[in-house]
Design a protein around this nucleic acid. Structure first.
Length: 608
DNA sequence: GCAGGTACTTAGAATAGGCACG
DNA sequence: CGTGCCTATTCTAAGTACCTGC
């Protein structure tokens, strides 16, 4: 089977897509037959193969766009009369709106959020805003509110859902599928594409991460009159729910969103956009990795330049050079400024003096910088890094006469940095370094860790370890999964059982072999069979042991984020092809649809 | 230069779903 | 043939980046 691989070359301002034919032979090309006997196209074929087409220039994102509009959150349903809200020990009837707000809190009663004062205070403030004056008169003290019955009701509801019969679940499933079929897709430039989030966010309590000052505030219900629709000029405008109107209908083909609204807690615009499998997203993703590969061509020069600038007379230039060094070496995020009313987190440019500690010597290393700061999502970044002496000296200089709360790089921000980066390479920004170093690390780790003669499970451990190296670089963490310890114990149990089985099998094999030596054909066959069984058991044991290592190493590390956002998928595709590893061992279905372009574009010789 | 606005990518947690196992 | 567990999917918050208008 033949596939097309495309390479992109800069040509003046434009990019021209050149197409090569290439013979691919490995596992990945063993795809389902795509044309049905009837000649009807399958979904896959309906999708555009944008990677084989010419690219659109300028800021225009599409020519035609038609969709059905967003799906609204289901209307509030009152809880049964016997499910009561208690105030000061006594049941209290609430008006519908107040009751709904109470259920928002009740649903979270067993959550950690409810132990936080900020959360409770914010909730109570908004809760009171929804109350009638009568209710306000009574409900004055949050500590006297009791949501327990409501909480138990929702727990029971959830149990009920889980315990539903097969038939009931099937009905639900079918309803959901019908909804997706109707609202989950749009037509864009003649192709049917999946929408990412076609449901409007339901009302509830705002769950800010970390020490967010707004956690617990009520996210209000979105009405049609809050929603802006974006679609093609000549397409059918999605009908708003009867009796309502959209806030606005526009036809802006320089943006990719289908609908938007302003969320009330932070005042941010929220969007309905396409699924990652779409052409629009895929093309952008491809460009992202091509930009990172262009960085590879100039990285040596850039590194030499910033090292040189550590000596600059200009403080601004020195700070820029040191910051860039961190971004490059440690894959730090750019670090935009943030508002007061958000959680206090930082990235490189927004580091403050309290986030770094300088040690002339630490644990046998010299010139050590200890980073300790809350990053995106308030995930802690902790790293003890040995740096060049010059960097160390510069940091001492930057920190002179500063106190806690002062910016480390007081002459620098992300705009200044990115303006500089643009000079070094077209399209270069701080985040390109993260993509570049992540993909580069995967490639080099795969080279290092893959033993061509290893078994597939061993190769998979190598792949996961390479992936893990990237996740560690990018500081992609997760909380230890619930029941991790138990799951490890189970695995150990399984391993023990397997070992016992092997022992038994070995003993039997030994006896049979003896019997076979002097014995008949039948005994020989039996002995051979046992031998095969033993082999199989040993293989299974090996696999379990590899799984154990992998799972434990992965306890607090999240691999998904880097796989989805930082690793050029063509590296993985090429690795699979080269090593005879089926692609589905490393990409699940979602990832395979997102990265379909890469599966087609990369052969086993692809290098990042 | 900077404040505010817009559009898009990246992020971990929550939840749904499906599959292996007894 | 459930059920308990793990993986996949969904959800939406939180970033980056760049634009505009002073």
């Amino acid at each position: 089977m033949r596939w097309l691989a495309a390479a992109v070359f800069p040509l003046g301002n434009r990019r021209l897509c050149l197409v090569f034919r290439q013979q691919l032979t490995t596992v990945i090309t063993n795809r389902k037959i795509k044309r049905r006997k009837s000649g009807v196209f399958t979904d896959e074929e309906q999708q555009s193969r944008w990677w084989e087409e010419e690219k659109r220039e300028d800021g225009v994102k599409w020519s035609t766009l038609e969709h059905k509009g967003p799906v609204f959150a289901p209307p509030y349903e009152r809880v049964p009369r016997n499910v009561r809200f208690f105030y000061d020990g006594k049941p209290l009837d609430l008006t519908e709106e107040t009751e709904e707000a109470a259920t928002f809190y009740a649903k979270m009663l067993n959550h950690d959020y409810c132990t936080k004062d900020v959360f409770n205070n914010n909730f109570f403030k908004d809760f009171r805003k929804t109350m009638t004056s009568k209710e306000k008169e009574i409900i004055k003290d949050f500590r006297k509110c009791n949501f327990q019955e409501m909480f138990e009701f929702f727990q029971a509801e959830s149990e009920k859902r889980k315990a539903a019969t097969k038939e009931e679940k099937l009905v639900k499933k079918n309803e959901n599928e019908a909804l997706i079929k109707e609202y989950g897709f749009c037509m864009i430039d003649g192709h049917k594409e999946k929408i990412g989030n076609f449901r409007l966010e339901p009302p509830g309590l705002f769950r800010g991460r970390g020490e967010h000052p707004k956690m617990g505030m009520i996210k209000r219900r979105i009405q049609a009159s809050d929603v802006s629709i974006n679609c093609g000029k000549d397409s059918k405008v999605p009908p708003p729910p009867s009796g309502s109107r959209w806030k606005e209908v526009r036809h802006d083909n320089t943006v990719t969103w289908l609908a938007s609204w302003i969320e009330n807690v932070q005042g941010q615009v929220k969007y309905i956009m396409l699924n990652p499998s779409s052409k629009l997203k895929g093309e952008k993703d491809h460009i992202k990795y091509e930009t990172a590969r262009r960085l590879d061509k100039v990285i040596d020069k850039i590194r030499a330049t910033y090292r040189d600038e550590w000596k600059s007379k200009e403080m601004r230039v020195r700070q820029r050079a040191v910051a860039l060094y961190f971004i490059d070496k440690l894959a730090l995020r750019a670090g935009n400024e943030k508002d007061e009313d958000q959680a206090d987190t930082v990235g490189c440019c927004s580091l403050r003096v309290e986030h770094v500690q300088l040690h002339k010597e630490l644990n046998g290393k010299e010139n050590v910088v200890v980073f300790d700061f809350p990053g995106k999502d308030s995930i802690r970044y902790y790293n003890e890094v040995e740096v060049e002496k010059r960097v160390f000296k510069n940091l001492e200089l930057f920190m002179e006469h500063k106190k806690e709360g002062d910016d480390l790089f007081d002459r620098l921000n992300t705009q200044v940095l990115n303006e500089h980066l643009k000079e070094l390479m077209e399209g270069l920004t701080a985040k390109v370094f993260r993509t570049y170093n992540a993909s580069k690390t995967l490639q080099s780790q795969l080279d290092l860790l893959t033993d061509p003669s290893a078994t597939v499970p061993e190769k998979l451990l190598a792949y996961n370890r390479a992936n893990r190296a990237v996740a560690i670089l990018c500081n992609h963490q997760r909380s230890v999964p619930k029941g991790h310890q138990k799951s490890m114990e189970n695995l150990k149990e399984k391993i023990k059982a397997k070992r016992d089985a092997i022992d038994d099998c070995e003993a039997e094999y030994h006896d049979l072999k003896k019997a076979a030596k002097r014995g008949s054909m039948k005994e020989k066959i039996n002995s051979d069979k046992k031998g095969k069984q033993l082999e199989r058991l040993k293989e299974q044991l090996k696999k379990l042991e590899l799984q154990e290592t992998d799972r434990d190493e992965n306890k607090t590390i999240a691999l998904g984020t880097s796989k989805l956002n930082y690793l050029d998928p063509r590296i993985s595709v090429a690795w699979c092809k080269k090593n005879g590893v089926p692609i589905e061992k490393i990409f699940n279905k979602t990832q395979r649809t997102k990265f379909l372009w890469a599966v087609h574009m990369a052969d086993e010789n692809y290098r990042f």
